[in-house]
């Protein structure tokens, strides 16, 4: 594997050891020690994935993520010291695909990086169009319309919607969604799913407080209904 990774982390020890671990796993790693430098490096060279610490000098990780998202759909993983729901929400709102909680073990980080890369590189296995109520989903073009109007979704939101629509009428548990959308084959943090579902609803539902397309099944998970 020869994927190029941009690692933006201010703590020198964490930056160095993470770079060593990723390098040993076969990734080409470029490092930056603050938000501004990170953006400069990102604009200077092409990358396949960005690892972004939240607490960065000069420009915080959320802002760096927002700026990256203006021009790119590249997978972005946030490295966060806290895993409060607020952090997850802010990270996803900024356009991050996933977050890795500090402290992390390097093999765990590598697994998450590989899952994100797999997901990003996954070719659409169908070219047809799907529909859910007023929504039109162009699988190959990775775009969604509601009553003919474009609905901008992040990569994660699109994958989540696609997974629910493909199994419409069925309840998908949070664990199943974590597995299929985020590519985790271990017990992840299911709050990620809850927050992503809320973000998705805010974009596709008429009234996100009274969802009609993606429903919560208490004690079980979520399901899409036509």
């Amino acid at each position: 594997m020869d994927a190029r990774i941009l690692l933006v982390e201010d703590d020198p020890s964490i930056r160095e050891v993470t770079a060593i671990g990723l390098g040993a796993a076969g990734f080409a790693v470029t490092t930056a020690s603050d938000g501004v430098e990170g953006l400069e490096r990102f604009r200077a060279d092409p990358f396949d994935l960005v690892l972004l610490d939240v607490m960065l000098p000069r420009l915080d990780g959320y802002e760096v993520c927002r700026q990256i998202r203006r021009t790119s759909t590249i997978p972005v993983l946030m490295l966060t010291a806290r895993a409060d729901t607020m952090d997850v929400v802010v990270g996803l709102e900024a356009g991050a695909d996933d977050y890795v909680r500090k402290p992390f073990e390097v093999p765990e980080l590598i697994a998450r990086v590989r899952a994100a890369l797999r997901r990003a590189g996954r070719l659409p296995d169908e070219t047809d169009r799907l529909a859910l109520g007023p929504l039109g989903i162009d699988v190959a073009g990775r775009s969604v319309t509601r009553d003919g109007v474009d609905v901008p979704l992040t990569r994660t939101e699109f994958d989540l919607l696609l997974e629910l629509v493909r199994h419409h009428g069925q309840v998908l548990t949070r664990d199943v969604l974590l597995d299929r959308v985020w590519g985790y084959d271990y017990l992840g943090d299911s709050r990620l799913v809850d927050v992503a579902i809320q973000r998705l609803r805010a974009k596709i539902e008429t009234d996100p407080a009274e969802p009609e397309l993606v429903l919560t099944v208490r004690g079980a998970g979520y399901k899409a209904v036509r």
């Binding site: 703590d11 020890s13 964490i14 050891v17 993470t18 060593i20 671990g21 040993a24 010291a81 500090k102 402290p103 992390f104 073990e105 390097v106 093999p107 765990e108 980080l109």
Partner: peptide
């Protein structure tokens, strides 16, 4: 302590291998 511990955890995970 969190930042140095984060560094230690990452370092130890490589050392362990």
């Amino acid at each position: 302590l969190r930042t140095p511990v984060s560094a230690l955890v990452a370092e130890a995970s490589i050392l362990r291998d």
